[in-house]
Design a protein around this nucleic acid. Structure first.
Lengths: 192, 192
DNA sequence: CACCGAACTTGATCTGCGTCAATTTCGCCT
DNA sequence: AGGCGAAATTGACGCAGATCAAGTTCGGTG
């Protein structure tokens, strides 16, 4: 039994759908609290993503290597769920890194435990389905941006959509997320 | 009661999870068969995606306009489900077109009916969740390809992953899907 | 089967962004 | 506070792919 219950997580789930006492208790029993320092890799290529994470505090990024260079595909923060989509859902080895950009407090659950929850509490499938839909929508919007906008427009968009990111993530990571080199991003920022 | 039951759809769902007789009957009652000619737009920008489609026969594409030019984001075919992710899940106006590239036979269901099924048959949430996960994985793989591969590598990848697409989709649409102009794709194909 | 418009190819030129290299600035640790 | 390595900026140059333009081939229709 955890000393601290995963309250931010439970609070979030509760806003989506009332949780039965049993489901609540089972979540509290299974969720594991992890305090980890900046720089920790939650996942590396070749490994299967065994756990789902919920971020109580911190910023996390997913990235890939494209011939030796890091390409950041996403950033997540407080109150976000984190999984490496392909590896976790297919339970096959990842191509992706998942890295903490700040000291973080996370809650985690194994793949097997999650499947068990889905079986044991059918109503939990509805929550899982809607969370998956929400993140899928987020991912589609990100991809759309990459496809449809010019480099300056992608930068401006990020600046208006997620201004806070610039306070917490180094520009070189933002650059690769926008599909640019740090040099090009720097020049974009300098334009007037 | 439809003259023809949506058997390919039910067969597919049945492989994922046994369907109760009631759920089966409700699906048969609600699913609407549509035979539509090539060129039909299932969705246009500004409209909310009200229906989910299942493809019994035909090829369908999703595309956007990027300053006057079409950018194809996906292609789907027999036994695929089709929705415009952002618009359908958020029930907000679409930016996307959805167009039939061949004469097609589709089965469809409205957003409201789907929500009703989720409520009425809790076990249906599990099917919905897993289908959403599968398509999310597909979408992530597509995006990854765009991000990490060079233009020639993206072409080669598509050629090995979905060779059949080249028989059924005009090259100009494949070009924009790969993030290229038709001219550049043509030159890529001519290289030796 | 011939026609017409769309799809595809081929060529010439242009350009946005990448690459490589050299500073400058920042942020963290002692 | 000072110093060191990483991050960001700035400059010069090159190239992959876009653009514009002119054929050529393909496919559907009368």
């Amino acid at each position: 039994m955890p000393i601290v219950p995963p309250s931010p997580l439970l609070a979030l789930l509760e806003t989506m759908q009332p949780l039965s006492a049993e489901l609540r208790a089972e979540l509290e029993r299974l969720m594991r609290r992890e305090q980890l320092p900046r720089g920790t890799h939650l996942l590396e290529p070749g490994h299967v993503a065994h756990r789902l994470y919920f971020v109580e505090r911190g910023v996390v990024r997913g990235f890939y290597l494209k011939d030796g260079r890091e390409v950041s595909s996403w950033f997540m923060k407080e109150n976000d769920f984190i999984i490496s989509i392909v590896s976790f859902f297919t339970q096959t080895p990842s191509l992706e890194y998942v890295e903490l950009l700040e000291d973080a407090t996370l809650w985690s659950l194994s793949y097997g435990q999650l499947q068990h929850l889905y079986q044991q509490f059918p109503e939990f499938n509805s929550i899982g389905r809607r969370l998956t839909e929400n993140y899928y929508v987020l991912s589609e919007r990100r991809t759309l941006n990459l496809r449809l906008q010019s480099a300056p427009a992608r930068y401006d968009q990020l600046l208006t959509d997620f201004p806070a990111i610039f306070q917490r993530v180094p520009l070189k990571h933002i650059a690769s997320h926008l599909g640019l080199t740090p040099e090009t991003l720097s020049r974009l920022r300098g334009r007037r």
